[in-house]
């Protein structure tokens, strides 16, 4: 129980520090938007995933209110995605872009598997390790497409006032 709590605190800490360190000031908006986009999508996808027993979170922050893993869904993975999104290179070739995506998704899946195996923060039900890779890859890909759409026309984006 103590270890799980410490990991959750570490996730918040690393998320914050990572966001501040790895997202340059001029990309704050981009980073924040990517963060919110990913959060929205993982929230939507995790609802059915938890409902149909793909995975579960035995130890969680708000056990009475929700069965979802709040720190991971709400903060940690969105923060990682925003770092991923801000640092991706648009001009690189298809292969290096794919490698970038592949490495990020693989590392996060690896973390996820380690957390699943050694703590009670996550518990896979029907999901396997490659299922998790596909799931995280899917979340990253969909969020990336949505963010790319949002930022595709930079003049449009900055030329508008509320």
């Amino acid at each position: 129980m103590l270890m799980e709590r410490l990991i959750l605190v570490a996730m918040w800490l690393f998320g914050f520090v990572g966001f501040i360190l790895f997202i340059p000031r001029k990309n704050r908006r981009k980073g924040l938007f990517a963060f919110m986009m990913f959060q929205s999508i993982i929230w939507l996808c995790d609802m059915p995933a938890f409902k149909y027993g793909l995975l579960s979170a035995p130890i969680r922050e708000f056990p009475k209110a929700t069965d979802l893993a709040l720190t991971i869904n709400y903060f940690f993975y969105p923060a990682l995605f925003s770092i991923f999104y801000v640092h991706k290179k648009v001009k690189d070739g298809l292969w290096s872009r794919f490698a970038y995506f592949f490495v990020w998704v693989s590392i996060i899946t690896l973390c996820d598997i380690v957390i699943e195996r050694y703590t009670d923060l996550l518990e896979y039900g029907l999901l396997t390790w490659y299922g998790m890779w596909i799931y995280i890859g899917f979340l990253f890909f969909v969020s990336r497409v949505c963010c790319n759409w949002f930022f595709k026309d930079n003049t449009l984006f900055h030329g508008k006032q509320t």
């Binding site: 938007f33 919110m36 986009m37 959060q39 929205s40 929230w43 922050e61 708000f62 056990p63 009475k64 209110a65 929700t66 709040l70 709400y74 949002f150 449009l156 984006f157 508008k160 509320t162």
Partner: peptide
């Protein structure tokens, strides 16, 4: 549409957390 999307997503950030807190 972009303004609407930002407002939509920002609101979710707040309701996700607050919704859980009021029920908890």
């Amino acid at each position: 549409i972009r303004l609407a999307l930002v407002a939509f997503l920002f609101k979710q950030v707040i309701t996700f957390l607050m919704g859980a807190v009021v029920v908890e």
